[in-house]
Design a protein around this nucleic acid. Structure first.
Lengths: 343, 343
DNA sequence: AAAGCCAATCAAAGCGCTTTGGCTTCGCTG
DNA sequence: CAGCGAAGCCAAAGCGCTTTGATTGGCTTT
């Protein structure tokens, strides 16, 4: 059933039927109702390719996922997608995912844009210095960044967590509990979020007259074994940290495992704070031996990004920014600094 | 730059240019070369919406992800997508992901099909009795199932792991090591894969004259806390299992944690076998205290599904099936059955 | 009553591609 | 040398929608 048939059966022109269905004003209420009822009855749905061709809009949002053959795919990705997808669905958009080789990523944007495959894209995992923004600007393709880059904050749309403040707050909490040596198991610091986290911690340390020690700060892929390895190394340090901040639940779990292996107990012998992205498959707070965490839902961030991008596309808004605050949830993995023989 | 301009500049008709670019034979080799060179130089790419409209093909594969608001999104999903996406990319297809409310899933297939949004779909997480197949058949929409249903095996295309054999094999290995009580921490058993896993275990038990005990078999969401809870319950049983099969790494990690908490040691006091889907963010074998696992890459399965579906769409093949064997990797989490006072 | 307007509708022209059917050449056969 | 088939090219007709630019009739305005 296409528009032509539909309009013939209704005894109307295609124009009128199209307008009736798309909510244009120059159609009488009565006709509109009649058309809508009949369309529903006939189960009519416009052919989206035809519509796309005619309007030049694609009603599709692109997500470009750079991924080399044996790369790891970010475990956060699916939760983000889940959140964004829900909004797309609600607002009549489709989600197009391009898995591309890292080195062809940029040309993919060009191609998506030239082809009018997508009306806009979400930029994932922004680097401090990220030339994707340059490309997208040149292409005039609307985009929203999940995170930030070093570009001026008001020069593009983004949704981000206040990572700096979160880590500042967590560190301050530890400092107030008497900790003087605070380690960091971070993600890759060429990613903006990781850099800001370190800055947050360092600022808090300096405000308390402590010079950050790079020997108890590591930056790597945020997976369990890395958390385990990093914590193990920290514990073997001549002057080990009494508290450690992690950048994910996975590394926190690894770190926690290392602590247990060494016979120590979390919250008593050493304090650990994780970062909970509220990933759906990761232990919910309360289930897993309750860990002190900074917490913010990545799925929610996905929703925000999607909404913001669609607003941008519809022209209802210019650049917008959304800075989410992570919640600080105190669990059992933190406690006062152990009393040392020294000092 | 569109076809019209391109052909004008080349001094050829649109027909010829289109044919040249699409590899039709009725174009001289010389012309084809000239056209191709020029198109590349001009950076021409056909407008895909126009092409879709004209051909009725969408060059897009759909993935429908049912997801209610606070549902968990399957952690396997992103790895599967990564694998499939790579193939789509290579073979010139796009990936469309629809996140839908579980209750509207079926109508989404209709809509995707009627709209010609997709040329085919991948069916995720098949149930034993799954009416999605009925719908897709009625819609004549090509599909490949990742897993199987209770429908006759040769009546549709699927890619699956030989779950039954994997669990049979793992159980037999344990039985040969003297274990007589083997527990199971399974996924939801309305999912075919989980059902087959239990069947594999039960068959092995019966072949050794042991009646399966439902009290040491649980079925639930495969996340860490559930593994932990299940194992804790098993250990508290009046006649606890000496070995346990898990259906994922997440539950295995939870189970492992429960074992450690109880002061026991894996491989000595109790044996544990996990199922490693080779998820990119999960501890690689060797890193995590090496666990005995059944192993098969879900990312690879994604690749196979994608290839199979595209073949199906292109009409190069009828129904095809691919039964992958899981590898059995012996690690340190298994050992001979502990010698009991009894027996 | 003529003029003008608004509301409601329509015919037709795109959107940029593919594909059908036809038209030249040209080389070859009988 | 007529006749024919193949090779190579083209014009034009879709694909199913949106949108521009009429067109109509009924009502108000002067």
């Amino acid at each position: 059933m296409n528009l032509k048939e539909l309009s013939e059966q209704l005894g109307l022109s295609q124009t009128t039927v199209s307008r009736a269905l798309n909510g244009y004003p120059e159609v009488s209420e009565e006709t509109r109702r009649r058309v809508e009822a009949f369309a529903r009855k006939m189960n009519y749905q416009p052919n989206s390719n035809a519509r796309r061709l005619a309007t030049g809009k694609s009603y599709t949002i692109g997500h470009v996922v750079p991924l080399s053959d044996h790369d790891m795919i970010n475990p956060h990705f699916s939760d983000f997608i889940a959140g964004a997808g829900e909004i797309y669905n609600r607002r009549g958009y489709d989600m197009l995912i391009s898995v591309v080789n890292a080195d062809t990523e940029k040309s993919v944007y060009e191609s998506l844009s030239r082809n009018r495959r997508v009306d806009g894209v979400i930029v994932h995992g922004p680097r401090v210095k990220d030339d994707r923004l340059t490309i997208l600007r040149k292409l005039k393709l609307p985009f929203v960044v999940h995170g930030r880059t070093s570009d001026p904050e008001d020069s593009f749309s983004w949704v981000d967590v206040n990572n700096r403040r979160a880590y500042h707050k967590a560190a301050t909490y530890l400092l107030e509990a008497g900790h003087r040596r605070i380690g960091l198991i971070n993600g890759w610091e060429y990613m903006t979020f990781a850099l800001k986290r370190r800055e947050g911690l360092e600022t808090a340390l300096r405000q308390n007259g402590i010079e950050p020690d790079p020997e108890i700060m590591v930056s790597s892929e945020m997976i369990e074994p890395n958390g385990h390895g990093a914590m193990k190394a920290f514990l073997a340090h001549r002057d080990p940290p009494t508290a450690v901040l992690c950048s994910s639940m996975l590394t926190a779990m690894g770190a926690s495992r290392a602590v247990h292996e060494s016979g120590m107990e979390l919250g008593r012998d050493i304090s650990l704070i994780g970062y909970d992205d509220c990933l759906s498959f990761l232990p919910a707070a309360g289930e897993y031996p309750s860990m002190t965490v900074m917490q913010s839902s990545i799925r929610l961030a996905g929703k925000h990004c999607a909404d913001m991008l669609i607003d941008l596309i519809d022209g209802n808004a210019g650049h917008r920014n959304l800075l989410l605050e992570a919640e600080f949830v105190i669990g059992a993995s933190t406690g006062p600094a152990p009393v040392m023989a020294t000092t």
